[in-house]
Design a protein around this nucleic acid. Structure first.
Length: 159
DNA sequence: GCCAACGTTGGC
DNA sequence: GCCAACGTTGGC
């Protein structure tokens, strides 16, 4: 049984189009510097899990596509790179602190805006929509996953 | 740029 | 271990 996740990315840094253009339409998810989000990747994510690719901190925040986890967690190389904004001087190759998984595009979708997600009763309990939520990776239930896919398939409400 | 929310840091 | 100060996230 796959699990489902919502993963936030700032499109200026890594957008759904960047994922589509990447070799194999796959890239490593780097830059997570929050322990809870890290632990999801390290402990709970498995190849085959579904990913809602979410654009954050941008003019139109929302779900921009579907992706898939294709690796287990492995050390995030940016923690070792002094020129990276994600450099962590306390991380060593012997004892890496931060990990990431590889994510592959399934398909780019129309944008499902944050406001539309909030307006959908079936998504009312979605963790990413909780007041004050700042986690960049949150679990998604199978029901929420199906609801999002249905919304993406049916397009925006008429009118 | 504002601000709510919440994570992290560090003195004690 | 407490908790105040500070930093970050992210929508608006």
């Amino acid at each position: 049984m796959p699990s489902y996740w919502l993963m936030k990315s700032e499109p200026d840094e890594a957008s759904i189009d960047d994922l589509a253009a990447a070799p194999g339409q796959t890239f490593g998810w780097t830059g997570v510097r929050n322990y809870q989000a890290r632990n999801f990747m390290r402990d709970a994510m498995h190849p085959g899990d579904g990913v809602l690719f979410y654009h954050s901190s941008c003019p139109e925040p929302g779900i921009a596509g579907l992706a898939e986890v294709v690796s287990h967690a492995k050390p995030d190389p940016t923690q070792f790179d002094p020129s990276s904004p994600y450099f962590d001087p306390k991380a060593t190759r012997e004892a890496p602190r931060w990990v990431g998984v590889d994510v592959r595009l399934v398909r780019k979708t129309r944008l499902l805006p944050l406001a539309a997600m909030r307006a959908e009763p079936a998504l009312a309990a979605m963790q990413v929509l909780r007041r004050g939520n700042r986690l960049s990776i949150t679990p998604v239930t199978a029901d929420e996953w199906r609801t999002v896919c249905a919304l993406l398939d049916t397009g925006p409400p008429a009118g």
